[in-house]
Amino acid sequence: MTKEIFDVLVIGGGPAGYTAALYAVRAGLSCLVLERMAAGGQMCETMHIDNYPGFTETIDGFTLGTAMQQGAERFGAKTVYDEVTAVKLDTPVKEITTAGGGYFAHTVIVATGATHRHLGLAREAELAGRGVGYCATCDGAFYRGKSVAVVGGGNSAVADALYLAGICEKVTLIHRRDTLRASRIHEAPLQNAKNIEIRYDSEVTALLGDGHLTGVTVRNKKTGETEDVALDGLFISIGRTPVTALFQDCLTLDASGYIVAGEDTVTSLSGIFAAGDVRTKPLRQIVTATADGAVAAEAAAAYLVGKQ
């Protein structure tokens, strides 16, 4: 039996991946999505998505991700739940190896997204789930009435701080700059929250506690002074790091590890396209990820026509 060669193989079942799949199958191409866990990707950790157009009520990321999957499968896209372990992308027929098998395709759309960035402090892994967390909406409830801190100054960090302020006794927001990067929509709620303290120009330099986090050492970058702050929980929300370990030897990546590709999603290898958060781009949002998916599918279709 000869193995099926898909027109388009998508790695990653988030918004970029399933939009690419939707556009590919609607263009008459065969398309397989390889997803390591569940549709939606990073969206699954977001309980309230209010900036994806077309919804009159808030929607959670898991529901939206599943809807995107079903939307693509309605037109014939296939999904296999398996983790990609190796790729061979520089041949006319690309070969993708997974934990449970192997797949062939004429084009590959990389939509592997990004994951939580770690602080990189000693014992961070040991204390994860023991006071140190990366998902405030998942773990916030375990800190009811307690004292927690959020590290970061972007939209995710501020949204986490506001969410935790409704549950915890006190929330300290620790940010390394002198102003927040978060959108202005967060300003009023942040000012109105009585139990949020913001420490600007500050960084966490050590995690304290034996077996469970009991506090952190905070250093003021302007004065150089350090102080130990007692905490029950610390949520780290300092941005994302791209999931590109599989591609570091075959695709051109930027200094942060993102796949170098323009708005046309074209990468350094022919027939390989990058869509969503994994690509070098100015704004990483669900709506820009879905846009990338559509562009990548069109680019893959054009590549296939050119090859004939």
């Binding site: 866990m37 569940a38 939606g40 969206m43 699954c44 950790e45 977001t46 309980m47 959670d60 990321g61 898991f62 739940y81 998902c135 909406t137 998942c138 409830a141």
Partner: peptide, 17 residues
Amino acid sequence: YADWCGPCKMLAPVLAQ
């Protein structure tokens, strides 16, 4: 797990399998 936790929902089909 909890019903409201996204990563728990992601893991549920894996455990069912």
